[in-house]
């Protein structure tokens, strides 16, 4: 692939994102803004980000504009004579009050997003995520009221990325592709498979050091802390493969433990789950609560 090709694609992706605002599955070259995401909740950080950015741009234009005017008008070289005033009560009240009002609006929006995020009640499925140096483990705990036993697996960086990322491998990261999409460092041997349209609760912990589980398209990240369990939720709207990475420095291969979530339709998921349960049944392998032994 030529760099020119990449560039055209990048611009196309950017243009598309700016014009139609659709959700991207994965980071695109030249991507300028946060993804809108693919869950019911992920629009909130996206909108908040856009509103806050807008506010900042407006304030920036006003402040920097005033500065620019001052720097042009009040130059000594243009014969400006310094005035003596150092005070303006009205102005000072205005520029203390208006920011407060803006902050109240932002705080209102943010608080709404936060409370909905914190509410994991009503979930129909629970997945336990455990971070290890340097891989993720997924254990399916419960689906639609039924406990799931012995469905769990490690999810590691895919072999091709792993080979390519070695120092001096001489391999081209651009060559790491799945279905024409570059997945260098963003692909795993076995992704987390989840259904769309189901409120999934993730319970997240770690086995050694702190990691952080992040898929931008789900709209959040949350730390995986050894000995502590954090919870978050997502209801994915569209089927697809959503990629992310560990977001908390966790040692030398921190950059090489991607998160891949494959969202499929509910029936596909149920099929997949039944298959995994059948496969797990005969072999009395280690169970979910003791993942450390398999790490």
């Amino acid at each position: 692939m030529t760099t020119g090709g990449i560039r055209i694609k990048a611009w196309a992706a950017t243009a598309c994102a700016l014009l139609c605002g659709v959700a991207w599955a994965n980071p695109k070259p030249g991507q300028l803004n946060m993804p809108r995401g693919v869950t019911e909740w992920s629009e909130r950080p996206y909108l908040l980000n856009n509103v806050a950015l807008g506010v900042c741009v407006v304030i920036g234009v006003l402040v920097f504009g005033a500065m620019a005017i001052a720097m042009v008008r009040f130059r000594k070289s243009r014969g400006a004579v310094a005035e003596k005033w150092t005070h303006n009560t009205t102005l000072e009240i205005v520029w203390t009050t208006i920011p407060v009002l803006i902050l109240v609006v932002l705080a209102y929006l943010a608080t709404g997003g936060l409370t909905t995020f914190a509410d994991t009640t009503g979930s129909q499925m629970t997945v336990k995520v455990t971070g290890y140096q340097w891989k993720w483990r997924y254990d399916y705990v419960e689906y639609r009221g039924k406990a799931i036993d012995k469905v769990g697996f490690m999810s590691r960086l895919d072999a091709q990325s792993d080979e390519t990322r070695q120092l001096g491998s001489g391999l081209d990261p651009h060559a790491v592709q799945v279905d024409g999409e570059n997945t260098y460092l963003l692909n795993v041997d076995e992704p987390l498979v989840v259904p769309v349209g189901v409120k999934i609760r993730f319970v997240i912990t770690a086995g050694d050091v702190i990691h952080s589980w992040w898929v931008p398209d789900l709209g959040w990240k949350i730390d995986a802390i050894p000995g502590i369990v954090n919870a978050a939720w997502a209801t994915i709207k569209t089927p697809g493969v959503y990629r992310g990475q560990c977001a908390e420095l966790c040692g030398q291969d921190h950059g090489f433990m991607p998160v891949v979530v494959k969202a499929v339709t509910r029936s596909e998921f149920e099929q997949w789950l039944a298959q995994r349960q059948a496969r797990a049944a005969p072999a009395p392998a280690a169970t979910a609560p003791a993942p450390a032994k398999q790490g």
Partner: peptide, 15 residues
């Protein structure tokens, strides 16, 4: 914003 974590020595070609 596009999703690149900090403190990583290597990254996807999108970045």
């Amino acid at each position: 914003l596009a999703g690149m974590p900090r403190r990583i020595p290597d990254y996807n070609v999108a970045f």
